[in-house]
């Protein structure tokens, strides 16, 4: 396994033109994922996680303009900038579904109600692997069995409304993995499921990752899941990565006040009933006409007026892989202002 990253996102910006002005939901995001690795992208809703992940596949709506670089290294070590490809063209379609594939948040609406599950998974097989009907059906059935769909032959001819939520998510995973992609993007794959099913699905994903050796970009707002699944974590806030590091570093020693806020708001077993769960005050502001200064300023409990509201802090690294975008870290790195 080469140690070259499978995907490198460099300084990704996404803007959306609206009547009221230009929205900038993603503002300079960079990260990379190596083979076999899982990167967790964490943040509240509206922070730009989903847009970032869809930008990799080039499936954002037309009104979203992306700039920066998204370098994808395919099986033959060729590097392509995904942003340079025509989002409706043949080249990018050949990558989608076969080299990079995606699992969506709500399996109930990810399938068209009009066609059988088998038809929809098999479409992927036939697009990317083989045109032969028998062969492709065999491959599809094999993958359906692999993701734990019992009675796959019968299930193949059933419609989405005959599946339960958990089963549909398995089918969705089968559809994403049937071409054995190098990178799997999982956009909150368990949020719409029951807790017991969540655990099953996560385990399934880990097993399949081991077996197929793919990299995963795991998007979630649930820090508990991140701890279970991810090697490295990137925390996003208001379109920027505010903290990044290995999962251990982030959990042991969160640096950014936002990350700490997220940590504290996770419900822990053993806390007393009467204790109120911690919550970060306010909501993610709309990325429209942003002020100078740190995006978290208004909600931060540790802000320093006169410093934090002047300039947006860069990522400061605390040695190793652990970096955070907060002036307090700069103080630590440089030994005080």
């Amino acid at each position: 396994m080469s140690d070259q990253p499978i995907i490198q996102v460099r300084d990704l910006h996404i803007s959306i033109d609206m009547d009221e002005g230009t929205l900038t939901p993603v503002r300079g995001v960079s990260f990379e994922i190596h083979p076999g690795e899982t990167l967790g992208l964490v943040g509240e809703s509206g922070c730009g996680k989903s847009l970032t992940s869809k930008a990799i596949l080039g499936i954002n709506e037309k009104k979203c303009h992306a700039r920066g670089e998204i370098l994808f290294r395919d099986g033959e070590d060729r590097v392509t900038d995904m942003l340079k490809l025509d989002p409706r063209g043949k080249a990018i379609r050949a990558i989608r579904g076969s080299q990079i594939s995606m699992i969506f948040q709500e399996p109930m609406v990810a399938f068209s109600p009009m066609y059988t599950i088998g038809n929809q998974i098999n479409e992927c097989t036939r697009l990317h692997i083989t045109k032969d009907k028998k062969e492709s059906k065999a491959i599809t059935l094999e993958m359906m069995k692999k993701v734990g769909i019992a009675n796959a032959e019968k299930r193949y001819d059933q419609f989405p409304h005959e599946f339960s939520g958990g089963m549909l998510q398995r089918a969705l995973i089968a559809m994403a993995l049937v071409c054995r992609p190098r990178l799997l993007i999982a956009d909150e794959p368990t949020t719409a499921l029951d807790v017991t099913i969540q655990a099953q699905i996560l385990e399934l994903m880990q097993e399949l990752q081991k077996e197929l050796g793919m990299a995963i970009l795991f998007i979630t707002h649930d820090l508990g899941t991140v701890a279970k699944m991810c090697d490295r974590v990137a925390v996003m806030y208001l379109g920027r990565i505010v903290e990044t590091g290995t999962a251990r570093e982030i959990y042991r020693n969160p640096q950014h006040p936002y990350t700490r806020g997220l940590m504290n708001s996770v419900h822990k077993i053993g806390t007393r009933k009467l204790d109120r769960l911690f919550s970060i005050e306010g909501t993610v502001p709309l990325a429209l006409n942003l002020k100078d200064g740190c995006g978290f300023f208004d909600r931060c409990g540790e802000r320093t007026e006169g410093i934090c509201d002047l300039k947006e802090p860069e990522l400061y690294c605390l040695g190793g892989t652990h970096c955070a975008a907060c002036v307090r870290c700069r103080e630590e790195v440089t030994g005080g202002a």
Partner: peptide, 15 residues
Amino acid sequence: GRNYVLCARAKGVSE
């Protein structure tokens, strides 16, 4: 505007 369109696009189906 449905999600299954996005999903189909993500698996490389043509417009």
